[in-house]
Simulated scan of single mutants.
Amino acid sequence: MVRREITGIGSVARLAEYVSAIDRYDLLLGLIPIAFAVAGLAGHVLGLPLEATLLGGVAIASLALFNGLFFRPPNGLQGA
């Protein structure tokens, strides 16, 4: 059995490595569920119907999707 050191789990250096590994496309993928969550919260607060709320979430998420796929697509050179 391998013994693991657990004292350095929350170190700042390790956290900085994870944050520096996040690229633009990770943020775009994270924006999609956040768009639906924000639209759902806004629809609940403003008393909008579910269809309008979903349409707002789809509009924001589709902007992120089209930006990542068509307007500024990945060129395959990341990490090379």
Rank of each mutant, 00 (worst) to 15 (best):
M1K: 12
M1S: 12
M1N: 10
V2W: 01
V2N: 10
V2R: 12
R4Y: 14
R4L: 11
R4E: 10
E5P: 10
I6R: 13
T7R: 15
G8W: 10
G8P: 12
G8I: 13
G8V: 12
G8Y: 14
G8L: 15
I9F: 10
I9M: 10
I9Q: 07
I9G: 07
I9P: 02
S11K: 14
S11D: 15
S11L: 11
V12R: 03
A13H: 09
A13V: 10
A13F: 07
R14S: 11
R14K: 13
R14Q: 10
R14G: 14
L15A: 08
A16V: 06
A16F: 06
Y18K: 14
Y18A: 15
V19H: 01
V19Y: 02
S20L: 12
S20G: 11
A21V: 02
A21S: 12
I22D: 01
I22K: 05
D23F: 07
D23N: 13
D23G: 12
R24C: 05
D26S: 04
L27N: 06
L27I: 11
L27F: 00
L28A: 06
L28Y: 03
L28I: 08
L29S: 09
G30M: 03
L31P: 09
L31C: 09
L31S: 08
I32P: 07
I32S: 09
I34E: 08
A35K: 05
A37S: 08
A37N: 03
A37F: 09
A37H: 00
V38W: 05
V38D: 06
V38R: 03
A39W: 02
A39G: 07
G40A: 04
A42C: 04
A42G: 01
G43W: 03
G43F: 00
G43D: 04
H44M: 02
H44Q: 06
V45T: 06
L46I: 07
L46S: 07
L46Y: 02
L46H: 00
L46R: 06
G47H: 04
G47M: 03
G47P: 06
L48F: 04
L48I: 00
L48R: 08
L48D: 06
L48E: 02
P49R: 02
P49M: 06
L50H: 04
E51Q: 08
A52N: 05
A52T: 07
A52K: 05
A52L: 00
T53P: 08
L54K: 06
L55G: 01
L55Y: 09
L55N: 02
G56S: 04
G56E: 01
G57N: 06
V58E: 05
V58N: 01
V58W: 05
A59D: 05
A59N: 01
A59K: 04
A61C: 07
A61V: 02
A61K: 05
S62R: 07
L63N: 09
A64Y: 02
A64N: 09
L65K: 03
L65A: 12
L65F: 15
F66I: 14
F66T: 09
F66E: 06
N67A: 15
N67P: 10
G68N: 13
L69K: 09
L69I: 14
F70Q: 10
F70A: 13
F71P: 03
R72S: 14
R72W: 14
R72D: 15
P74H: 13
L77D: 11
Q78T: 15
Q78R: 13
Q78K: 15
G79F: 15
G79T: 11
G79K: 10
G79C: 14
A80S: 11
A80N: 13
